[in-house]
């Protein structure tokens, strides 16, 4: 069995495929968290825009992943760019929705006492609302992580490289050994990343939880 693993690992260049995979994953996560946070804060600052914006993001969420990849092809070519863009589009919603919910759901009494103590609205946002929203934001990031992992793998279909590529090879050649080894490895990777995120989320909850 170990022999099979080693053979597949070497013939399919799984080490460099994993690096590619994690590279796409990190870039996509970085931008989806960044954009998600910014949108979350913007719709918090303009409450009237919150519903329309979240609805639009919800709508994009309903486009099937495969269809989204194909729609993006004319704009971004094939390979990594459309894969990363698709991951970002999918992952913005959980991050911005949780940011928005986290910022708005802080206990009213705490906001009131913050004002009474003489904190400005800006100081309340950064010193009270944001830290208290962190556990919820971390929850959103965790959902984004799962989305991104899935889409990056799907990127194999449009020549994005990463672990989706050898998986695609395995399917095309009907080689179960490749499919199983790469599939398991992709799964293990996803579980490890999710566990890491879970630990962070939990520690934030302990620290900032109410």
């Amino acid at each position: 069995m170990i022999e099979t693993i080693v053979r597949v690992w070497q013939s399919q260049f799984l080490f460099s495929r994993t690096i590619e995979h994690l590279y796409m994953f990190s870039v996509a996560m970085f931008f989806s968290v960044l954009i998600g946070l910014i949108i979350g804060v913007i719709i918090y600052l303009n409450p009237k825009s919150a519903n329309p914006v979240l609805n639009i993001l919800n709508a994009t969420e309903t486009i099937p992943t495969l269809a989204l990849l194909v729609i993006l092809l004319p704009f971004f070519g094939i390979g990594m760019p459309p894969t990363i863009v698709a991951s970002i589009i999918y992952s913005i919603l959980p991050v911005s929705r949780n940011t928005y919910t986290g910022l708005t759901s802080v206990n009213k009494q705490l906001i009131e006492i913050s004002r009474a103590l003489g904190l400005s609205e800006r100081e309340i946002l950064f010193k009270v609302r944001f830290p208290m929203a962190l556990p919820l934001i971390a929850g959103g990031v965790r959902i984004a992580l799962v989305f991104t992992m899935a889409i990056v793998t799907l990127g194999g279909l449009i020549a994005a490289g990463g672990l989706g590529a050898p998986l695609q090879t395995g399917i095309n050649l009907f080689r179960t050994d490749i499919i199983i080894v790469v599939g398991l490895w992709t799964g293990i990777l996803a579980v490890i990343l999710d566990l890491g995120a879970a630990v962070i989320e939990k520690s934030l909850k302990m620290r900032y939880g109410r």
Partner: peptide, 17 residues
């Protein structure tokens, strides 16, 4: 003005974080 005025309330007045 509020920074010149101390304020105390019942129950959850402290920041939990």
């Amino acid at each position: 003005l509020r920074r010149n005025i101390g304020y105390v309330i019942q129950e959850i007045g402290l920041f939990p974080h």
